[in-house]
Amino acid sequence: MTYKFKFRPYRRRFVRSLATSHGIWDIREGIILSLSDEVGSGWGEIAPISWFGSETLEQALDFCRQLPEEITVETIFSIPDKLSACQFGFESALEGLGSRDSCTDAINRVSTYSGLLPAGEAALEQWQTLWQQGYRTFKWKIGVNAIAHELKIFELLTHALPTSAKLRLDANGGLSYEEANLWLWTCDNLRANQESSPEIEFIEQPLPVDRLQEMLELNMCYATPIALDESVATLKQLEYCFQQGWRDIFVIKPGILGSPSRLRKFCQQHKIDAVFSSVFETAIGRQAALQLAAELSQHKRAIGFGINHFFEQEEIWLQSLWKDL
């Protein structure tokens, strides 16, 4: 079976720059692709984040450019692991050929969303807007500014948030071991007074990827859970961390993790506590990721796709891309 293959790169500017411990992110770049046969078309998205663990955009473009105008299933399933975002994009498009589910169908099968707050003091205002939109779980970036400053903002934020809210802290691997201990100790103290403060659900990736053993140790010493994120950016890394004994929370970013079919097999076999999360993809990649989240989420945690406020509305923008595909 062969499929006609087309692709087109895109660039989207964030409404506000995204600040993480990796730096400032202003523009989201990726690739929209289509596969078609005599019955219809399937759409996929390649949205790499090279500093997170996937291939670069240029590597993804090089791969697409060297493909012929017609490709086979064998071509899709032979994409190497080093092109994890390409694996996701091509398999998603192939699955889309056999499914007529809309993005709304996928959204309706997922329970709740976590809203992403901006780093720093801006979070003190942004949470109110998101709360009015229905969000009850929030993620706040830490490890961006000096820890003393962030702890002061954290105190203000936890006093401002309703007690029914949940808060996730995302360090993007930007803390030292001492800073991670201080954050976990602070969160444990807050958890001890749960009646008067929001729930601190977990701290996400406090230490760099190469310090898994220390995160395993920290996870045993504190009541506040740790979630792995950058450490499990690809399927190979996910399998490695599981083999090393990680049994707490895994943050899964389908858009860069790799093959959806292999991810399904892993999650169904091991029943991991997974939080599915966005890579700031368009509605095309988001639909495929949400369908995986709906299918594979075991613990009914809020999924990390509350990021629409970082972009302008995309419907007209996407329509202009589709004209050429």
Rank of each mutant, 00 (worst) to 15 (best):
T2Q: 15
T2I: 12
F5Y: 12
K6C: 08
F7P: 02
R8P: 04
R8I: 05
P9Q: 00
P9G: 01
Y10G: 01
R12I: 11
F14H: 00
A19V: 06
G23Y: 04
W25R: 14
I27W: 09
R28W: 05
G30K: 00
I32T: 15
I32Q: 15
L33P: 00
S34N: 10
V39L: 12
S41V: 08
G44V: 01
E45C: 09
I46F: 13
F52D: 14
F52R: 09
G53Y: 00
T56S: 08
L57S: 14
E58A: 12
Q59D: 14
A60S: 15
L61E: 05
L61M: 01
D62C: 11
L67S: 15
E69T: 15
E69Y: 15
F77P: 10
I79A: 12
D81Q: 14
K82L: 06
S84K: 05
S84P: 04
Q87S: 12
Q87R: 11
G89W: 13
A93V: 02
E95M: 15
G98H: 15
D101K: 14
S102F: 07
T104Y: 13
D105K: 07
I107N: 10
V110D: 09
S111N: 11
Y113G: 08
Y113F: 13
G115C: 00
G115T: 01
G120E: 04
E121I: 08
A122T: 04
E125A: 07
T129P: 07
Q133N: 05
G134V: 07
R136P: 05
T137K: 07
F138C: 09
K141M: 05
K141A: 11
V144Y: 14
A146W: 06
I147G: 14
A148K: 10
E150H: 10
L151S: 09
L161Q: 12
P162A: 05
S164C: 06
L167F: 01
R168L: 01
L169H: 03
G173Q: 00
E179W: 02
E179S: 07
L182Q: 15
N189A: 12
R191F: 08
A192W: 09
N193E: 13
E201T: 11
L207K: 03
D210F: 06
L212V: 03
L216P: 00
C221S: 11
C221Q: 11
A227S: 03
L228Y: 01
D229K: 00
E230Q: 03
S231A: 10
A233V: 02
T234R: 07
Q237C: 05
L238W: 09
C241M: 04
C241R: 06
D248P: 02
F250P: 02
I252V: 08
K253M: 03
G255D: 01
I256D: 13
L257M: 07
R264Y: 02
F266P: 03
F266G: 11
C267A: 13
Q269A: 13
Q269S: 08
H270R: 05
D273Q: 11
F276P: 08
S278W: 01
V279L: 05
E281D: 08
E281K: 12
A283M: 06
I284E: 04
A289D: 07
Q291R: 12
E295T: 13
E295D: 15
E295G: 12
S297E: 07
H299F: 10
H299S: 14
K300I: 04
A302N: 02
G304S: 02
N308D: 13
H309T: 07
F310T: 07
E314P: 03
E315P: 05
Q319I: 04
